[in-house]
């Protein structure tokens, strides 16, 4: 009996939290700014801290993943004498899968955790209450710019990740391993389609962005305003955000590329 009660409580708790988070998202997105110039300034500031400051980790990881992919791809493809296909392999893996997914995971760790911690700390130091007492809605002023900045930055970061990965993979395979440059690019050009490969990757990263940033700002907003509570919320952001990305990736891949 206790098992059923536990199960019921967990399922109920999950849907309860999901509903609360849904209301929170709805309220944030549909509360329009009062002064657009101010809203734009707040948004740009967040684009800087969420997007621009994540660039280093995205570029460095993209480069290494591209190089590793090229090495691995080359060693296998060269057995069949088709090392020229390394360009196609790189572009498709990065654009369809690794770009959106790895960017999402890195983004959850780098920007998501920072968002949760920042908002949690604002709550702990009564800054959110202070906005409320001033008659300024913290959802509009604090949450909305962060949410929108995250959602718009991540697809761009994913594209940068893929581009850097392809470039680094090209350096390894063409400059180092001696793959013929012309066939490297032409194999890529033949097999990569803008609407199915590039756009599907962008759609994926857009969906991941909504999931990760939504989780991050919500966890920060509802966390216990203590040092322990903020720590737990930050962990939850990274864990839930990463799991959400992997789960959603399966669903989206099945919907986009599944042949049934």
């Amino acid at each position: 009996m206790a098992v059923f009660k536990y199960l019921f409580d967990s399922v109920y708790g999950f849907f309860d939290a999901f509903g609360q988070a849904g209301i929170f998202l709805f309220q944030t997105l549909f509360r329009l700014p009062v002064r657009f110039s101010e809203a734009l300034r707040l948004y740009i500031r967040q684009v800087y801290s969420v997007g621009v400051l994540s660039l280093v980790i995205i570029v460095v990881s993209g480069a290494f993943i591209g190089m590793v992919l090229a090495l691995q791809g080359y060693t296998i493809l060269t057995r069949y004498g088709s090392e020229a296909a390394v360009g196609q392999l790189l572009a498709l893996t990065l654009l369809r899968e690794l770009g959106p997914v790895v960017t999402g995971l890195l983004f959850a760790g780098r920007a998501g955790s920072a968002l949760t911690a920042e908002i949690g700390l604002m709550k702990a130091t009564e800054q959110l209450s202070s906005y409320e007492m001033m008659g300024i809605d913290p959802l509009r002023r604090v949450i909305a710019p962060r949410l929108l900045a995250g959602i718009t930055c991540m697809p761009i970061l994913a594209l940068i990740f893929s581009a850097v990965g392809i470039w680094a993979g090209m350096m390894v395979s063409v400059q180092w391993l001696g793959v013929y440059e012309g066939s490297f690019w032409s194999s890529m050009q033949q097999s990569v389609y803008f609407d199915t490969d590039v756009m599907n990757g962008v759609i994926k990263s857009f969906v991941f962005a909504i999931a990760v940033v939504w989780i991050a700002v919500y966890q920060g907003y509802v966390c216990q305003p203590t040092s322990e509570g903020i720590g737990r919320a930050t962990t939850r952001t990274v864990v839930m955000g990463s799991l959400a990305i992997l789960g959603l990736d399966f669903l989206l891949t099945a919907a986009m590329f599944g042949d049934f």
Partner: peptide
Amino acid sequence: LFEARRKMGMLFQSGALFSD
């Protein structure tokens, strides 16, 4: 409520200045 709050000022225990 927001109208009423506009006529109130509150000094929080920690100050609660906006850190950014």
